[in-house]
Amino acid sequence: MEEDMKYGLGVNADERLQDIVESSVEMERLGLHYIWVADSPSLRYSPVIASAVAERTSKIRIGLGLLSPLIHRPNHIINSLVTLMDLYGERFEVCIGPGDINQLRRVGIDVSTVKSLPNLLIRVREEIDAGLRREGFNVKVWIGAQGRRLLEISRFFDGVLLNYARPKHVEWAVNILNSYGKDGLYVGVYAPSYIYKVRDESLYKLLRVSSATVALGASDSTLKRLGFYERLRGFKRLLAEDSRLEDFLDEIPDDILEEFAICTCRSELTRIISDFKRLGVTHVIFSYPQVLSWENSAVLSGLPA
């Protein structure tokens, strides 16, 4: 039987903690299924934020991640999950992946020098699984994927969160997933989002930041395939040279940024969701900055099952 579509809100953990918690309470009240707490070296520590969300909610599932094994040892990930589940019940899931290359570079990690990243991720997934089972827990482990290399190993995970926003890009990824087939693999879309009733330019600006982070964190091969490489490589180089995104954000073309974000009014969203559903997507996570507007988060109620 076909499962109902599950919806979630992604929080970036750089909003005020109180806002994150209150939004989570509101999302639970609206019937959303997930809060995903993002993690990166410059954000708040996601397991602590997850505990603050869990303390004030009772049903909503809480995802940790994406957690990068390049900064979190497998036993750290296991320890966080075991502690959270011991304190708040078995409503946690985790997503692992390499992480944002530009953020990792800030803490001295050069992803391009990591040998056989896919094998590392598979090994870490197995370690997490074994560690949690030892403690009597069974947790869904997702992989965050965008390029072909990671999509190909998605079958070793319970689900894959795709860092795409457009149905045509999701379709490309789903075709790869299907060619490596695994029954019951959950497919989620996790994208910077701004679903609005009335568009607010300050939120749109934040969407650009979030979308640019995804675009400039994409691998060269992904950008080449999408046809954006030539127009973005200069900006990628600036980040690699330690410039900060805000120094040149305004120069990144809007049309590219919109490819990496779900930015639409509520009525149009239903059509996008039905496209996702047709492609086999089971989860849609509306990531930052959707969380920032209560009014705009309320538009997420009553989405199609």
């Binding site: 966080s80 502690t83 011991d86």
Partner: peptide, 14 residues
Amino acid sequence: KPYDVFVKASFTLM
């Protein structure tokens, strides 16, 4: 032991 001291501290603070 498989526990995250930061999460335990968060719970305690709350």
